[in-house]
């Protein structure tokens, strides 16, 4: 999967599965996902399931930190780092 594809696939998943506020429907790369409530405690588990099933990565408990999930950019770079 190309880097752009990874990013778009993550964006698409978050938009269809996690966003439920009309203010967040246009998700930019740097939009805050945690403060805005897009990712909550249930959402993070769904998102990890998605990344593990679709991107062939294993997210360790140590990597489950706000820095890695704060935006689409942050999640993409976590996945890229793991694939590389």
């Amino acid at each position: 999967m190309e880097n752009m594809e990874i990013k778009e696939s993550i964006r698409n998943y978050i938009k269809t599965e996690l966003v439920n506020n009309k203010d967040h429907q246009a998700l930019s790369d740097s939009d805050q996902l945690i403060e805005s409530g897009v990712i909550d405690s249930l959402g993070i588990m769904k998102l990890i399931g998605f990344l593990e099933d679709n991107m062939s990565v294993q997210i360790d408990d140590m990597e489950l930190v706000p820095e890695n999930f704060s935006s689409i950019d942050a999640i993409t770079s976590l996945v890229e780092k793991k694939i590389a």
Binding site: I34, E35, D40, S41, G43, D61, M62, L64, V65, P66
Partner: peptide, 9 residues
Amino acid sequence: ETLSIFPSR
């Protein structure tokens, strides 16, 4: 509130 999203934090 946001701490509950990250179990190890």
